[in-house]
Design a protein around this nucleic acid. Structure first.
Lengths: 203, 203, 203, 203
DNA sequence: GATGAATGAGGGTTCATTCAT
DNA sequence: AATGAATGAACCCTCATTCAT
């Protein structure tokens, strides 16, 4: 999407950072290239030297965020740890990501523009949720093989786990009903969700 | 939000119907007051006699839609029916609503504009999810009292139930990854979710 | 081209007059809608209430000018008058039209944009030169029938007559070599051209 | 116009060749300095080292084209040949030049921009039409002296001859009504024009 | 001398809003 | 109460020009 024989990687970052701030506040449609330029500290013309247009800039922004966020959600999964521990850790990190300012922003914009930019939503899905689900499903399969879980459809179970983590906090953040989440709140959601999951799929 | 010493309730309805069609197709930013006026069959000036502006019209539209859609999700709950049956029926209707064109549209718009119109998101939440959760939590409490479920936090359990229904289909619809859902797909999600719920909270 | 269920004929005229002044100075590409709006004394938005865009405005302008100019070039042709008289009178009016500010402007713009707006050039041709040629050819035919001229191809003879009128003054005006033409200059060109024509085609 | 203590004549030629291609396709307003730079294979900065700006570059381009095209329209005039033959040959070459792609292009651009670049139109006139007219007028004078023509104003007669050659084909090409001209069409126009000219001015 | 990234004024166009009718 | 013509700020984007390298 973005031109990656890019003129100056530093300036591209600068632009994307500015764009992130503006997109965050105003959404895709609401964001103006003028404001993004001002926020990024470059001229409007420079925006168009780095990105083909607004849609392209938005795409590059989404792609970068996905790539950034998705790393290390599962970096230190230890198959020998008790399932409860792994589930708790993964669930916690997922909630943290989904309720973070940028995570929230990404979700909002991708959902809002999915009808207009379906390929963007797909990019987002592949770079984010799909990878997370694949990893989780893999882990569940291994736990089944090890006799520690009993799951018929690991992929779907992974989805259930992730949706359970979205109870209460995620929805409220998405609807701007709350401005932040505390560690205690997160812990409560994670524990309850993990317990439900294990009662259903544990051994 | 809207002026409720309203000039002519009939004309207000007429405008909101036009607005609904346009917002549905184009979203908030994409909708133009001209198109809404044309679609509603009134002049642009009349729009401003009934609503203070675009944001106000949007608010009134969301409010009315919420009120309209949210009715009777639970109209025929029978406390004597087996819990599994009730859960299945409620879950099924929830998925149908969330993946319907209008349900999806509402969700997208409210989430998209939550940062800009927080009070709108709140309206939506109160008129929709909050009422559904309250009803469900009430039913769970009654089931606990009847010794048919064992739940510590009925309100939260209700949220978990609803999030479980959002696995797979809802997310994919929201991201425009799929264009429709089949009854079989719905049934699979509902059954798996209800089973998980009952294994955790049943008796 | 222009919307002729026009909002206010007076304002449309006002806009077209402003457009004429700006197009005259800057040509099609060089003219800006902002300047046209300012020159016409209306807002930019109003321009777009009356015309679909710049190309449409330009088209309407060309059409109006053609319609205006072309009338009465031949209104009072009297078939009983001596051919020399008729030719002189028509030739004189033709030079006057071609060297007038608007006539010049029209020619410049239509020729300049013919590659980009061929249908415009065609409109111009049909509304202007084609009609003039047809009328002239008709007159020539009648003069032949009356035994006062001897012409094989009346249509082509008409073209030759008109091109003869373009010697000296028209080209120089088109190239901005001169800013105006005097009546004496016109008379000289007309007489010389008519004499040449009659020596060749007269009887 | 162009800086003639020029940095490298070779590079200047290179730039003008690129400019010619772009101006030919897009006209003055439509041509962009970026495209010209790319087409010429130099950087945009270099353009500005050789030419003061777009207008200056355009001027240099027109000047060079005039100098190039105008040569040898009359190189082989033989005063002993019959006037009809000479006139036919000159007329034919004139039509060919005026209806050629480049001739047409030059005419269009110079006429289009005459109001904005009057000195440019003058350059064009001096380099092209003026020289052609002077040569032709000279030949006519010599023919008069030799008793083969009888013309009062040789200069003006030369203009009439040239305008007669512009009947039909030139106008239609200029208005993009036709895309090409055949030899037969040219011959018809030349013969008819020459005959008319000789009936009027021959002896 | 040559480069091309950066600039920012200006391009055509849209549209929420106003107000005279 | 209803109209819709008029407004003008703001939109995205282009491009002639400059200047640090």
């Amino acid at each position: 999407m973005a031109d990656h024989d890019t003129l100056s990687p530093e300036k591209e970052r600068q632009i994307l950072n500015g764009a992130a701030r503006v997109f965050a506040l105003d959404g895709y449609e609401g964001a103006s290239m003028s404001r993004i330029a001002a926020e990024a500290g470059v001229s409007k013309g420079t925006l168009y030297n780095y990105f083909a247009g607004k849609a392209d800039l938005f795409g590059a922004f989404v792609q970068r965020e996905c790539a950034t966020r998705m790393t290390l959600l599962f970096d230190d999964i230890d198959d020998d740890a008790p399932p409860e521990e792994t589930l708790t850790q993964v669930g916690r990190q997922m909630i943290i990501m989904l309720t973070s300012d940028t995570g929230l922003l990404m979700y909002r914009m991708v959902v809002a523009e999915a009808a207009k930019f379906p390929e963007l939503a797909d990019t987002f899905y592949q770079a984010g949720p799909a990878r997370a689900l694949a990893r989780m499903a893999g882990w569940i399969s291994r736990m089944c093989a090890a006799g520690r879980l009993r799951v018929e459809d690991p992929e779907f179970a992974a989805e259930q786990l992730f949706t359970l983590m979205q109870a209460r906090l995620c929805m409220r953040r998405r609807l701007q009903l709350i401005q932040s989440v505390s560690e205690d709140e997160i812990e409560a959601v994670v524990q309850s969700g993990v317990r439900l999951f294990l009662r259903g799929y544990g051994r």
